[in-house]
Design a protein around this nucleic acid. Structure first.
Lengths: 204, 204
DNA sequence: GTCTATATCGTGATAGAC
DNA sequence: GTCTATCACGATATAGAC
């Protein structure tokens, strides 16, 4: 039963999923600007007009494509809920886990690529970082809010930079280093940001 | 003598500079894809055809626009030439100095924005990071090359992430923190990457 | 529900007048 | 050296047939 007749009885919902998957792949691979409706349609094996029919404008397709397919809040509850001195390692593991899994990498890669030159995507990333990372992270610290947010931002900067160099630019040897190796090297640094800096390393 | 007649005797070099400056601004503001020849021409107050006349294709304009107007190698010699335990602070100061000065920020912003979705710009960034940062940085360390490069990449990741969140995404309060404050917080972390990690912070 | 056809626009690039 | 005019192309988006 591979042949699909016109007016198929399933009532739709099949092609729509194909289009959404293709949109995720295209936006992740090319960013908002370079991704095209025609390309998404071709990749999904449907007509370009059908993409508009289901999702409307290109912006709306993008918004639908980058909605996280998993509950990210749950994962971050685990990160910030446990022992304070383990937040660094848990955050690094969570972050790398999202990026190593193709299903979750696609949306975040699409947002990151697009956020560089598209204000709406930048706003999405800004809001996500603020709501999902900075606010709960800062709240779990025993310092003033502004100080906590800055610490979190510096920690997130470290991880965001790794994402850019490892997953987008692909610089070696970082791009082929194992996750465990990265956890070993990054967790203490991220934790240090959390604890207010690496200054103590000099030993006084 | 503000009026310019046709066939002006200066022999050209005036409009060309205007176009180049406009191209820097447009590429920095929008990235490669969203920047347009017409937009550059409009911004420079000339015709679009003149842009092609001087610089050729859009790729060639981009290449001309992102050529650093200052000798970056000299600055990095200072960073890596001095005392090893000051590399962290000197690298952070150099990096932030480049990004805080509009003249030098424009080219690097253009490359960063474009590298996210344009393979040629990504290759430029990859080669620049490798040749100007990783290789001299790793060479100044007393560890195997591969290990030194990875340490440098993690240090650069920290700075790259700060650039993304501070200068592109504009997340607060990081975007409005003073340079000195950032140097204070980042230099030890970058230095720790250089020295092989923050592990010693726990004090044993 | 799906696709054909097309309207409308903006792009990069070129030829050639002045 | 500078600009007018235009080509060829691909984009988003829509109208409407089936």
């Amino acid at each position: 039963m591979t042949a699909r007749g016109p007016g198929r009885p399933t009532g739709g919902g099949d092609r729509r999923a194909d289009i959404l998957a293709a949109a995720r792949a295209e936006f992740a691979a090319n960013g908002f600007d370079r991704a095209t409706i025609r390309g998404i349609a071709r990749s999904a094996g449907v007509d370009a007009a059908l993409v508009h029919h289901y999702f409307g404008t290109k912006q709306e397709i993008f918004a639908a494509a980058v909605e996280f397919p998993f509950d990210i809040a749950t994962g971050l509850q685990t990160v910030f809920g446990g022992a304070p001195d383990g937040i660094g390692e848990r955050l690094v593991r969570f972050f790398l886990g999202v990026w190593e899994n193709p299903d979750s990498r696609r949306p975040v890669l699409a947002v990151l690529r697009s956020a560089m030159s598209q204000e709406q995507a930048a706003a999405m990333l800004r809001e996500f970082v603020t709501a999902a990372l900075l606010t709960p992270g800062a709240a779990s610290l025993d310092v003033p809010t502004e100080e906590g947010r800055l610490r979190m931002e510096l920690a997130v900067s470290q991880l965001m930079g790794v994402a850019v160099l490892r997953y987008v630019i692909g610089v070696q040897p970082l791009a082929s280093t194992t996750v465990e190796e990265l956890v070993t090297r990054l967790a203490p640094v991220v934790q240090a940001h959390f604890d207010g800096g690496c200054k103590g390393v000099a030993g006084g």
